[in-house]
Design a protein around this nucleic acid. Structure first.
Lengths: 334, 334
DNA sequence: CCACAGTACTGAATCGGTTCAAAGACGGGC
DNA sequence: GCCCGTCTTTGAACCGATTCAGTACTGTGG
């Protein structure tokens, strides 16, 4: 009894039927003023809290939305999450944040869980487009891809033009006089990584006096960056590239740390350009040049597309592409 | 029909009763091998996904756990979250991450939502201990405080000794010869901020040749730190403290950026010590001295205490206190 | 041949809101 | 006094999985 009063006890206390209590909660305009107040009083006295499972069971869907990201520790994703949350909260929805650590198995198990929860929709930065996403959609749960373009026939997506971003970074480095550029990033199965490389590659292959090599990493975090930096620092000094372009800022910060630690100077010995322009890029040991993406807006837009898909009768899938912007700081100018 | 097959349709297809399907799902050892296989086959063919609301409604509680933090964009909290997630996932629980932005209203609305969801428990770094936490507990939902000690009579809590942390930082600065120290942090209603100040204050007031002043901020992020740094930089040069101790690393990074931008040298003109030792502290423009906390372990321990509270018959509330550790880097040594 | 234990399975009651057809109350117009 | 429309309230059906008392069947020991 003390445990959790239900709607029946509230009805009893207020001297009305359960239907009326439910109406007070969901469509208060249907209930006469004095009755409404009696019900509110009863709710307050008993400390009644609606049981969301029961509500969901009847209504068929929940008031939550799933957000599946590669790495919560990456400020890029927390900024996107912030944008998603803003929009979701405005519409009375809660966000369930799931972390995949770039592991397809974790991704799968999170998606299964979200399916069981009957979330209103899922925002995901997918690792591999395996069948599970299609399965969700078949079950009537809309899925919006973010930071990755999808097939406009079946899904909405929001992305930033990663090829352009790669091109911006490479163009900047080439124009600054660099002739041997190393791309650090991975795993290459991540589309973002691949496309950023592709953009850089396009710029370089248009000229025959610039060399682009690649050093793949197993993850996109600071530790992986440090490891890559250490490899560079211990390698043959002549083999050292004159510039490094990293697939994201965490890698760049790691590389920067390792190179500095090994006594190399940035940008004098090696220039660095990162990607994402997270807040910490500007505060780095050597302020980091980086390709900026509209992070919060990415999240907001993704959430809006998802909401549109759940509410519109005639929904047409949209692809939104934002343009990245190069921010030049000390790490790439001699 | 295509929408979402339920357990009844699975039962029909497999030629068994709904009870048996449920048993296959929840206590497979009770079901004979061949039957079990028929049921699994039916589940696969129909693409059946259990409806978690129905399950929750019947069972009375969910398989989720709420984590309420001040700021998801702060790496300190994402690291704690990682620890919580590890432990929760090991026990088949999902984590709902809620962000309060240090706003009591958002905190309240998130707690209301978690109560409606009948989460198994809540891990919270509370802003104000208003009645809502007690209300949750009255309703049978255990609440564990983290990064903050609670009343051991009613709740478990995990914290790091913030007074000691403040003391470590201040002692270090005083021993390095600093005689005018500025504490930057706020709002002071946050216990962490208050206690870190208290620790520093205790060290300073034990001597009569050191002066400690305070500059309160409205938040604990990089932007607030930059604002504080700007105020310092534009103030009278004689009024400049010789060292700044910040309530967390985000503030410290902001202060560092603003001071450097204004042409002041760190640590020559002003020394800085931060708090949390987030990954980015080591990668800062001037590698930041900081007070390190065992972040992931904090999260893991908090989750374990919560799980203990939900499973043990005779639960005794525990208080776990970790000790912080001072990491000295360039920002505080001349 | 019966009693009994053990195993495998059944099916109806149950959790707690939401919804909607229908009943009731009330006032105005004729 | 009666009819009709509007506003308010009622109460039972319903969502889908879980649970448990009970049935059916098999094998064992006396």
């Amino acid at each position: 009894m003390a445990g959790a009063p239900n709607i029946r006890e509230v009805a009893l206390r207020a001297g009305v039927s359960v239907g009326t209590v439910s109406n007070v909660l969901n469509r208060p305009e249907l209930v006469a003023e004095p009755t409404r107040e009696r019900v509110f009083a009863a709710i307050a006295e008993l400390g009644f809290v609606r049981n969301d499972s029961a509500r969901q069971l009847r209504v068929g869907r929940s008031r939550t939305l799933g957000l599946v990201v590669l790495d919560v520790a990456n400020p890029f994703f927390t900024d996107v999450a912030r944008g998603v949350e803003d929009t979701a909260n405005q519409h009375g929805l809660a966000v369930i944040l799931c972390n995949t650590d770039e592991d397809p198995r974790k991704e799968a198990s999170h998606l299964d869980l979200l399916a069981e929860m009957r979330v209103q929709g899922v925002l995901i930065n997918p690792i591999d487009t395996d069948g599970r996403i299609t399965a969700l959609r078949d079950r009537g749960i809309p899925v919006v891809l973010f930071d990755r373009l999808g097939d406009p026939a079946v899904e909405c997506s929001v992305a930033v033009d990663d090829v352009l971003g790669g091109r911006l970074a490479a163009t900047h480095l080439v124009e600054a006089g660099h002739r041997s550029i190393l791309f650090v990033g991975g795993p290459l199965t991540l589309r973002q990584v691949q496309e950023r490389y592709e953009g850089a590659s396009a710029v370089v292959s248009a000229r025959d006096d610039v060399e682009l090599t690649i050093l793949t990493t197993t993850a996109l975090n600071v530790a992986a960056g440090r490891a890559a930096g250490d490899r560079l620092a211990t390698a043959d000094r002549d083999a050292l590239p004159s510039a490094v372009f990293c697939a994201n800022d965490l890698l760049a910060l790691g590389v920067l740390q390792a190179l500095t630690h090994a006594g190399l100077r940035v940008p004098a010995d090696v220039a660095i350009v990162g990607y994402d322009d997270i807040d910490f890029a500007a505060a780095a040991a050597v302020p980091l040049s980086s390709v900026r993406q509209p992070r919060q807006q990415l999240g907001r837009t993704a959430a809006e597309l998802l909401l549109a898909e759940t509410t519109e009768d005639e929904h047409e899938h949209r692809q939104v592409v934002f343009e990245p912007e190069l921010i030049v700081r000390d790490s790439s100018v001699r």
